[in-house]
């Protein structure tokens, strides 16, 4: 088994097995061997020594000027005296090494350099491994954190997405009538709020509100049972969907009460025709387990163009009045607030 010295293991590189056999090196040599990112430059700019990792970046360059474009002082002597040096690689100008230098007695300069925050990118670009860093360097820890951070962020994004989906689903359910799949009262209010928002931008926004009650729905329930009643409500939803446009809102707001919100609707005659189509469609016989059921519908409408400003409550009250008039007129018909007479 190889070395089992726990104080050394866990770090990286620079622990060659053959080290024990060679005679102990001089201080300078020992120090340089522990600095894989060092650069020793003569006073006239020749590279005298480069650490193993830095040598890979130099790609054989033996002149300091040819390899580096210093940010700040250009003269090697000044660089060596600076608190921090930043050296741009000429072969890869986006990459800036940083470190500090030291001026030696013979005018040569020793630099110890690092990748700084560009570490992750440098590891990729030069395919570096843990052996390319001094064990005292925190490069591996930084890479570990970078990787761990990415993994956690990915995981959190996935968790967020799941929550988002669950929320959309819960919201859709909160606005939907489970029996028919139409909007419920909250869904209707949401549609109206959206309509009003659009209307405030586009003042020409015109819409119709239609309240409708199925005629004698209670009788159908009593005669054929609740299952038949539920089936009928679902069928009405299907027929209303077919009779209206995609942009229209259809809501079921109570037992047999439906509301239509019809944007871009200003013409009473057109609304009258729609009412007739809906009545005709709903009055079509409906088969429930071999029993033919029939039902009709009364509708009361109101047009936003009849109001000087958008007044939801007033329109609702007017449509409700119109619905009452429709029922009094014998049901199975539409009445429009402010249009026609009894």
């Amino acid at each position: 088994m190889r070395h089992r010295d726990l104080t050394l293991a866990g770090g990286a590189g620079l622990l060659p097995d053959e080290a024990a056999a060679a005679p102990p090196p001089a201080l300078a040599e020992a120090a340089l061997s522990m600095m894989p990112m060092h650069l020793l430059v003569s006073a006239d700019g020749r590279v005298l020594s480069a650490g193993a990792t830095l040598a890979r970046l130099l790609q054989g360059q033996d002149r300091f000027d040819a390899a580096f474009d210093p940010i700040g002082p250009a003269c090697i002597g000044d660089l060596a005296r600076a608190e921090r040096v930043f050296l741009r690689l000429r072969s890869d100008p986006a990459r800036v090494l940083r470190g500090r230098g030291s001026l030696l007695a013979d005018g040569a300069a020793l630099f110890n350099l690092g990748f700084g925050i560009g570490l992750v990118d440098a590891v990729r670009a030069f395919d570096l491994t843990d052996r390319d860093f001094a064990p005292s360097d925190l490069a591996m820890e930084l890479l570990f954190l970078h990787e761990a951070n990415s993994a956690m962020t990915d995981e959190l994004s996935r968790a967020n997405l799941r929550l988002e989906e669950a929320r959309s689903k819960a919201e859709a359910e909160a606005f939907t009538d489970p029996l028919t799949g139409l909007f419920n009262r909250r869904g209707l209010e949401l549609s109206f709020a959206a309509l009003r928002q659009g209307a405030s931008i586009d003042l020409s926004q015109q819409f119709a509100l239609v309240l409708m009650d199925l005629d004698h729905f209670k009788t159908l329930n009593d005669t054929h049972g609740h299952a038949a009643g539920d089936a009928m409500l679902r069928e009405v939803a299907v027929r209303l969907n077919a009779a209206t446009r995609a942009e229209d809102t259809i809501a079921r707001t109570g037992g047999d009460e439906f509301v239509l919100l019809l944007p871009h609707f200003a013409d009473a005659e057109r609304l009258e025709r729609l009412g007739q189509r809906i009545v005709a469609s709903i009055e079509q016989p409906f088969d429930f387990n071999g029993t033919t059921c029939r039902i009709s519908v009364s509708l009361g409408g109101a047009l936003s163009t009849d109001y000087p400003c958008l007044d939801w409550a007033a329109m609702q009250a007017a449509a409700d009045d119109a619905l009452y008039r429709a029922k009094r007129a014998g049901r199975g018909c539409l009445r429009i607030a402010g249009h026609g007479s009894d």
Binding site: H3, G13, T129, F144, A151
Partner: peptide
């Protein structure tokens, strides 16, 4: 995969990995 990579960061050999478990 992501956890395996994080574990591999602890040591360049199995020896080093075991020695670094306290970390």
């Amino acid at each position: 995969p992501s956890i395996r990579r994080l574990l591999r960061f602890s040591g360049s050999s199995f020896d080093a990995f075991v020695a670094a478990l306290p970390e």
